[in-house]
Design a protein around this nucleic acid. Structure first.
Lengths: 354, 354
DNA sequence: AACGGATTTTGGAACGTTCCAATTGACAAA
DNA sequence: TTTGTCAATTGGAACGTTCCAAAATCCGTT
């Protein structure tokens, strides 16, 4: 033991991390006893526990979960979350809720976005498997292979799909009631007297688009309204999709009086383009969104939209994951979170609707 | 070896995860050899390598990074990221960029938000330490204790502060040029002829607020303009802050003709309230934001704002972290990412400015 | 003082890797 | 055949925990 003069270094570095063994030595007990204290077992006498706690404090010991996890392979406090894109407000809300739930349950979240690329998604899953996560929450990328997904499950990792689903996969999923939400939105427009209703935004490869489209069609069919294929204009990039989409559908038929948007983000784009074209939202053109982002009640006019509670996703998905972690044979469920229409001003609905 | 009939279970579960040992046995080599193959060492003959790869394939082996990390404590591909709040667009952009950089470098991200609570922040840091992350990227919560922060560093975990900094801490930080950005924004307003300029939003405990305030004051002082304290109206909750803040400052002095907002989100709130009050943005009232969110160019009118590139934060922070991981004695730096004024329409600036 | 039973503590194997030193094998040169 | 060299392979210790069975200690009864 010797002192090293290093006045130049502003913050001294500890030379080595203390281990259980060091703590044990400092407390004058065996490492088994320290382990018992750390696990809060009652079989330790108050006196030795205090000694051990003091030793932990004085050595600056930090528990090593890697070593612990190696021994007891069953316990695991890691959750791998893979969403399509982080940098979109709705994913942010969902992720933020998942994070909240994880924190409450003392779980640690490993997260990344697949950018809707299967290849990236596969690499991420592989990486998380190597880290031995206790389960996956996954928003599957378009064209995700069903058998690949099932292989994850069968090789021992519980998995819950979220927001989207891979068709025919026998795996649990938490998904919004896209069809019903879209149906109600479009029915609302029809009730307000609209006949020429476009559907703008979204991309055809993902399940939620298909479902919202189905809801849109159902509402129109019920009312006996037929729409030309050109009224339906899927474009992936949300805000820009709204701008381009509105232009496109109006170019096809300038009598279109209402637009059902795939998402609120698309609706913002529609707002933007409408203003440029001198169209007044809520008067000349009715607009409905989907998601109910935080900004949607302060847009002008306030956006009528379909709300899907982001925290429902998070809570249901985490609950399900817990179930499968404890019982891999538990029945596979498909949980639907409700979607409900929030009527504001962008459809020019009269006050009594609100 | 015997077959088990389980027609009822839709997806079969593997009974046990294969280990290096299993692969070795399947390939007819020793576990050391398998390890060499996994690490891509050249000392393995092509023939045995192929055997091993085939065995990995057939056993469905998944590398166990926990066990590996236990042995070679120096290498580490985990990064702990703690931001104040995920569910705000700017954090989302920054986090999304960090995630991108991590993926490129094959790093895994553990992330959570502190909700600006010191207590939560401390628990998270503790948890991540127990997982032996290779470093922290931290947006410090208000009132973060300097010595606590430095203790993280000195107990062996490199740490880079991001977006905010704890005053007097001797730790690296990547921060926006808040002062200069605010200065330019306010100077722009002054050049357009505004004299009564309010500063709305933000909260006083965080460093970036202080810096933006300083920039605002400098610009006003340089122009010889004095503002009453009531022109400055900090409120934390962004969108609502914009709404309440505008109301408050206008109630104090209705001649206020320009508002410098702490963030774009605050500006959105100002837009919303202004519309409610019948004030026309860009004509009756000039508004400048800070951040340049994606929505800010499609607001109406398009928002003049100070842009700070989110990916600059990410790239610089990750680069710095790498440096300190390799050399704990590397000089502690304070890296400033530029903030530049983007002139759009919300100040009513004439075209030639754009 | 010896005993029994409960309480508290402990040594050591195990988890799945890496890495070192040692061993084996092949082959050319003596 | 022996020797030396080099390449390829291997056994086993180590990493820092947990957990089991066994040991040690305590304490109230005989």
């Amino acid at each position: 033991m010797r002192d090293v003069a290093n006045w130049n270094v502003p913050i001294p570095l500890l030379n080595k991390q203390a281990t259980l063994h060091d703590v044990a030595r400092a407390a004058g007990v065996s490492k088994s006893t320290v382990s018992l204290v750390l696990q809060g077992r009652s079989s330790v006498s108050a006196k030795t526990r205090d000694q051990v706690l003091a030793a932990i404090e004085s050595t600056g010991y930090v528990y090593n979960r890697k070593a612990a996890a190696l021994r007891q392979a069953q316990r695991n406090d890691l959750i791998g979350v893979i969403v399509n894109e982080l940098n979109t407000p709705y994913s942010g809300e969902v992720l933020s809720q998942i994070e909240k739930v994880c924190f409450q349950q003392n779980l640690v979240l490993m997260f990344a976005s697949s950018s809707d690329l299967c290849e990236k998604q596969e690499r991420l899953v592989q990486l998380y498997m190597e880290h031995k996560v206790g389960g996956f929450i996954l928003c599957p990328a378009p064209y995700t292979d069903r058998t690949w997904l099932e292989r994850i499950w069968s090789s021992g990792f519980p998995l819950v799909q979220i927001m989207r689903e891979v068709s025919f996969s026998q795996l649990p999923v938490v998904i919004a009631d896209n069809r019903q939400g879209a149906y109600e939105a479009v029915k609302h427009l029809i009730q307000l007297g609209h006949q020429k209703i476009a559907f703008v935004g979204g991309s055809e490869e993902i399940s939620d688009y298909q479902e919202r489209l189905a809801g849109y069609m159902t509402a129109l069919n019920e009312a006996g309204i037929r729409v030309p294929a050109q009224y339906i204009c899927p474009i992936p990039q949300s805000r820009q999709a709204g701008r381009d989409g509105l232009k496109t559908v109006l170019a096809y038929d300038s009598r279109i009086s209402a637009v059902f948007c795939f998402s609120d983000l698309v609706a913002y784009g529609v707002f933007s383009m409408a203003r440029e074209m001198g169209i007044q939202i809520g008067k000349d053109l009715a607009v409905v969104g989907f998601d109910d982002l935080e900004d949607s009640h302060i847009t002008h006019p306030a956006l009528t939209t379909v709300r899907v509670e982001a925290n429902q996703y998070a809570i249901e998905a985490m609950n399900l994951l817990r179930v499968y972690q404890h019982d891999r044979q538990a029945p596979v469920v498909r949980r639907v979170v409700p979607a409900r229409l929030i009527i504001r001003e962008s459809c020019g609905a009269p006050q009594q609707f609100v």
